[in-house]
């Protein structure tokens, strides 16, 4: 099986079969991540550039390590000190990187659709590492991998996503990916942070956290950006934590063996209490490990297309 596109821009145009295939491949890759000899040569001779227009630790390091574990040359372009700061357009930056022989450009950008614009204008593969409020497809893949490790399947599971759905590319990719794989997705958020029409993507919107969480196999929290209160989206961090934060009391209706997840970085005590973050049910660190594995799988499959 081969991936249908040269690029990986979002889960919207990826089939359930392709998702399964990437997740299967990631299982194999995880062995390398877990071993003491972290070196395979699948990407030997390839060059991978991470082009990040937003700050990131885990996603960027995760991609870089994934490329390096497989023997690729991996270079980070730090936008603040690059020619972007001199006013170069995204397309020109992409063409410059391509002219240097880059095989894969991994881009994070504050504006939705930026990876699509880049992909249309260069022949190198483009991977979306998060674009504005649109998608963060590799995050959803690593979340799905983590859930599958626990339950063996995604089909028939109930996953509740709680928090700032409106601004969340993680939520969009997970809603699209999980529903494609046969899971049910419930949503709970302050009503100011729910995007119009989200239920038409196949998710169920709840106005009460207890109903949203009931019988769920997975409880996923989302990061709330603290500066959103200035935009009248919620009145204060305290009030947010009280009514929309995840704590042991309000998720007691979830299944006993439910997984507690968060894409990180977490605001402890805001969207999730520390008791939840550090509990046995929490798989936040597993998510990070699986992040490297799914990104290895993706890099491998994209370079193996030709």
């Amino acid at each position: 099986m081969k991936l249908s596109s040269k690029d990986f821009l979002g889960l919207e145009n990826v089939s359930a079969e392709e998702i399964s295939y990437i997740l299967e491949t990631a299982k194999e890759m995880k062995k390398t991540v877990k071993s003491s000899m972290k070196k395979v040569n699948y990407l030997q001779g390839r060059s991978v550039v991470t082009l990040f227009y937003e700050n990131s630790t885990r996603t960027r390091v995760s991609f870089e390590l994934a490329a390096k574990y497989m023997g690729a040359q991996a270079v980070n372009v730090s936008v603040a000190s690059s020619s972007v700061a001199k006013g170069e357009t995204l397309i020109d930056t992409g063409r410059t990187l391509e002219a240097m022989g880059t095989d894969i450009v991994i881009i994070r950008h504050p504006q939705a659709g930026a990876p699509h614009l880049l992909a249309k204008n260069i022949s190198a593969s483009v991977i979306n590492a998060g674009d504005g409020m649109h998608e963060h497809p590799t995050q959803a893949l690593l979340d799905m991998m983590t859930i599958m490790e626990a339950f063996g399947t995604l089909s028939g599971l109930k996953v509740v996503i709680i928090g700032d759905i409106y601004h969340s590319r993680v939520a969009r990719s997970n809603i699209i990916g999980l529903t494609k794989m046969g899971a049910q997705v419930n949503l709970f958020a302050p009503s100011t942070l729910l995007p119009t029409g989200i239920e038409k993507l196949g998710a169920k919107v709840f106005t009460n956290i207890y109903d949203a969480v009931a019988d769920c196999d997975v409880v996923m929290g989302l990061r709330i950006q603290l500066e959103r209160q200035k935009k009248c989206l919620f009145p204060s961090i305290n009030e947010y934590a009280r009514f929309f934060g995840i704590n042991p009391e309000n998720i007691r209706g979830a299944k006993k063996n439910a997984l507690w997840m968060h894409p990180g970085p977490v605001n402890r005590g805001v969207e999730m209490t520390s008791v939840i973050i550090d509990a046995d049910n929490s798989v936040i660190n597993k998510q990070v490990t699986n992040g490297v594995a799914v990104r290895m799988a993706l890099l491998y499959l994209l370079t193996g297309r030709e």
Binding site: A112, G113, G132, H134, R172, P195, T196
Partner: peptide
Amino acid sequence: GLTSTILGLRG
């Protein structure tokens, strides 16, 4: 609307 939500663009 739904399209802005899908595209992740501010409506």
